[in-house]
Simulated assay, not measured.
Amino acid sequence: MAAKVTSPRKRDQRMDPDAGNHADIRLWLRLLFCASRIESVLQSRITSDFGISLARFDLLSQLERVEDGLTMTEVSHRMMVSNGAITSLVDRLVEDGFVRREPHPRDRRTNIIRLTDEGRARFLAMAGEHEQWVVGLLDGLDEPVKRGLLDGLGALKQHLEKTGG
């Protein structure tokens, strides 16, 4: 069977998302690029300044928001990762003295994960720096651009929630 020959123009349009009228694909790629770039910068900074991964920082952030702690399943849902991934993160944070496991009062098969005092203090110090990094990354954008992005992404979020996407 002979290979299908594609004209250079058609091949280039398929490989170049900016070619033709593929606004939805361009939008998705732009969102992905921006999110990945910001995450990469934050990962690099938090690792170099605090010696912690962004995933562990995110887990500490989830725990800092709730006074009564969270189960592993609750953390995995909030962070949108598997229980196995959370177990590994929690193990390391327990070793570091940032979190502790406590037996669940009504389900002995489950543990509640809570911040230690040291973990809360360290997280709050990191969170202040993290906030400044994010502000610095977005600082060059005009306020109307920021407002437009926020409104547009809010509409996208509502649309995705409504459609189950």
Rank of each mutant, 00 (worst) to 15 (best):
Q62S: 00
F50Y: 12
S53P: 05
R45G: 00
S53T: 00
E39N: 09
S61G: 05
M72R: 03
C34E: 15
S36Q: 05
V41T: 14
Q62K: 06
I38F: 12
D68F: 00
F57N: 11
L42D: 05
C34V: 04
S61M: 15
Q43F: 13
I52K: 10
E74K: 13
S53Q: 01
V66K: 06
S36D: 07
R37S: 03
L60P: 07
L70N: 02
E64V: 06
G69H: 10
L32I: 14
I46T: 13
E67G: 07
L70K: 05
G69C: 12
Q62H: 13
I52P: 03
L60T: 00
R56C: 01
M72G: 03
E64R: 06
E39D: 12
T47H: 11
I46G: 04
R45S: 00
E64W: 12
F57E: 08
L70G: 04
T71Q: 13
H77A: 14
I52S: 07
A55L: 12
M80G: 08
E67R: 14
S76G: 03
E74L: 10
C34G: 12
R56L: 04
V41D: 14
L42H: 08
S76V: 06
L70P: 13
R45H: 04
E67M: 05
V41R: 15
M80K: 08
E74F: 09
M72E: 05
E39T: 10
M80A: 12
R45Q: 01
T71S: 14
V66W: 10
V75E: 09
L31F: 14
V66A: 00
R56D: 08
R37G: 00
R45Y: 01
S76D: 08
C34M: 06
L42K: 15
L31H: 07
S40H: 08
R45W: 10
R65V: 14
G51I: 00
T71H: 04
L31D: 13
E39A: 06
H77W: 11
T73I: 14
T73C: 07
S53W: 01
S48W: 12
Q43C: 13
A55P: 09
F57G: 03
V75S: 13
D68M: 15
M80E: 02
E39L: 07
L31C: 07
L60K: 03
S44T: 15
Q62W: 01
D68K: 05
L54A: 08
S53K: 00
S48Q: 09
T71N: 00
R65F: 05
S53A: 12
L32C: 02
F33N: 03
I46D: 11
E39G: 06
T47E: 02
E74V: 07
G51C: 02
Q62R: 01
D68V: 03
L31W: 15
C34W: 12
T47R: 08
S40M: 01
M79P: 02
S40C: 09
S48P: 08
V75T: 05
D68L: 03
E67P: 03
I38G: 06
D58M: 04
L63G: 07
S48C: 02
T47A: 14
S53F: 05
S44P: 03
R78V: 05
D49K: 04
